[in-house]
C-alpha cells in the first residue's frame, strides 16, 4: 500500500514538472535536466558501453526531450517516456555501429530456472565491469529497474513486453551476474 502511495506521489511529482515545462517555465526545464541527466546518461552508458558515445547520445536524447515535452500527453508517464527516447536513440546508435546483434560473449544457455536470492551489496564495485558484459537485453532491464527510476510495469511498458518477461529477464540477469562473479572467484 505504501509502495502504491509512493508511486502515485511520484507520478504526480513527474506530472507537475511536465506541466510546468509545458507552461514554458525556465526553472522547470532546469529541474528536469538536473534531475534526469545523470540517470539517462547512466542508462545510455550501460547500453553502449562507451563514455564518449554516451555523452553524444545523451545530448541527442535531450534535444529530443526538449523538443517533444510540449506534446507529452500524460505527464505522469515522464519516466518511461524519457527512457524510451534514450532507448530508441541508443539502439539507433548501436544499429549504426554494429549493423547486427551486439550481444556480448556471455553464454546464456543452461541457466537454472529456479529463482534464487542474490546478495549484491559486497559486489557492487565488481559488478560495474560485469554489468557491461551482460547481453544488451539483460543489461538494459537490470539498469532500468535498479536505477530505481522505473517500476516493473513501467519497464514493461517502455520495452513493450509483459511484466512477466521483465521479471524473467531480471532473474536471468541476476543469474548471469552471479555466474560471472563466481567464475572470477568471488563469493556471492
Amino acid at each position: 500500500m505504501i509502495e502504491a502511495n509512493d508511486t502515485g506521489s511520484r507520478a504526480r511529482e513527474d506530472e507537475w514538472l511536465v506541466v510546468r515545462c509545458q507552461l514554458g517555465e525556465r526553472p522547470a526545464f532546469e529541474e528536469l535536466i538536473q534531475r534526469w541527466y545523470g540517470p539517462l546518461w547512466t542508462y545510455v552508458r550501460r547500453l553502449t558501453g562507451e563514455d564518449e558515445a554516451a555523452k553524444d547520445i545523451t545530448q541527442d536524447v535531450w534535444l529530443r526531450v526538449l523538443r517533444g515535452i510540449g506534446r507529452l500527453r500524460e505527464g505522469s508517464k515522464l519516466r518511461p517516456w524519457l527512457f524510451g527516447i534514450a532507448r530508441r536513440t541508443s539502439m539507433d546508435w548501436l544499429r549504426a555501429r554494429y549493423a547486427a546483434a551486439v550481444l556480448s560473449d556471455v553464454d546464456v544457455t543452461g541457466i537454472a530456472a529456479e529463482d534464487a536470492p542474490l546478495d549484491l551489496e559486497e559486489e557492487l564495485r565488481a559488478m560495474q565491469g560485469e554489468l557491461a558484459r551482460l547481453p544488451v537485453t539483460e543489461r538494459e532491464v537490470l539498469t532500468l529497474f535498479y536505477l530505481q527510476e522505473l517500476s516493473l510495469d513501467e519497464v514493461a511498458d517502455l520495452l513493450g513486453i509483459p511484466a512477466g518477461t521483465v521479471k524473467s529477464r531480471l532473474f536471468r540477469a541476476r543469474q548471469l551476474l552471479r555466474r560471472e562473479l563466481e567464475s572470477k572467484g568471488r563469493q556471492v
Partner: peptide, 8 residues
C-alpha cells in the same frame, strides 16, 4: 551505487 552519472 550504480548510477553515478555526470552532471549536465
Amino acid at each position: 551505487a550504480l548510477s553515478s552519472g555526470p552532471t549536465p
